[in-house]
């Protein structure tokens, strides 16, 4: 019986070691677990698919910080690749001060892959303080929130922005965020200005956004690492990119860690019930 009781008292250092191995080994190996894209990832992907090439632009707000990078950066990169591969114009902005560096770095790497030209195929508006106020300002006139892009160039001098005034000229708004700012996009851009809103969020916060999916206030949702992996998979399946799947590899690690945590929970409960049974007077 002592064996079972010990099961509920494993030293946490062993747990830490096993978690580290469960993360590192899949990342270094080539597991390549199968992927079946989720319904809401597919919906967001299809929403971008429906936009005509070289027409009105998609707006992506990269509202995440480095702490959320493993889940959200592959999501952002996969969406940028999808848009640029299909010649769908792209407006990128951020409401997170640290998101500007991450988004700019991604654009700098991805744009040359598709021969995308700045100002013609994509623009980077940078960071603007104000969150909900910025979202509402874009609803009136994007120039009100962003008179210039991130590099100080007046928006009016950028060719692809000539016909863009507000959400009416943007067929899809996607917020990739690690905070509750997604709510502001749904409430202000979606409900007030009738923009079509999609989102990408961390797995821990995804439960908050399911009501918006059911009510149709969101066209799709990328749920954490799984959502990012789904989008990368769909990009590869449709031939938009051949770059290795970063989130796909991350999903291998997540899968193993999930199994490990479930195993720990089962062990902990076995130990708990055995100890409880032993404590009962015979």
């Amino acid at each position: 019986m002592k064996f079972f009781e010990k099961l509920s008292q494993i030293d946490r250092r062993w747990i830490f070691l096993l978690v580290a191995l469960a993360v590192i080994v899949p990342l270094l190996s080539r597991m390549g677990l199968p992927d079946k894209p989720g319904k809401y990832s597919l919906q967001l992907f299809e929403a971008v698919e429906r936009i005509q090439p070289n027409s009105q632009p998609v707006l992506i707000s990269a509202d995440y910080s480095p702490s959320m990078m493993p889940e959200l950066d592959p999501m952002f990169r996969a969406m940028v690749r999808h848009c640029l591969a299909r010649k769908v114009r792209l407006i990128v902005m951020t409401l997170d001060p640290t998101g500007a560096g991450l988004a700019e770095d991604a654009l700098r790497q991805i744009a040359p892959e598709y021969g995308a030209a700045y100002g013609r195929d994509y623009v980077f508006l940078g960071y603007k303080v104000g969150a909900a106020i910025v979202i509402m300002s874009i609803g009136e006139n994007i120039r009100q929130a962003y008179p210039t892009d991130a590099y100080g160039t007046p928006i009016d001098s950028l060719p692809m922005m000539a016909d863009v005034r507000n959400y009416a000229d943007i067929p899809l708004v996607v917020d990739i965020a690690g905070s509750a700012v997604i709510n502001s996009w749904v409430i202000f851009a979606g409900a007030r200005y009738k923009a079509r809103v999609g989102a990408g969020c961390t797995a821990v916060s995804s439960a908050d956004y399911y009501p918006f999916l059911q009510s149709g206030q969101m066209v799709g949702l990328l749920n954490g690492m799984k959502g990012a992996s789904d989008y990368e998979y769909l990009n590869q399946q449709r031939g938009y990119t051949s770059v290795p799947r970063v989130a796909g590899k991350g999903m291998d690690a997540v899968s193993i860690v999930h199994l490990l945590i479930m195993g720990f929970i089962v062990l902990g409960n076995i130990g708990y019930f055995v100890a409880k049974k032993n404590a009962q007077p015979k």
């Binding site: 978690v19 480095p66 493993p70 560096g101 945590i261 929970i265 902990g268 409960n269």
Partner: peptide, 26 residues
Amino acid sequence: QAPMDSAMFAILAFYMASASYRAFRA
């Protein structure tokens, strides 16, 4: 900045695994 920020958040995975093992009981 980015690696430091990511590392801080990544530590959570270890604590979550340990906490779920100790606290997630039926």
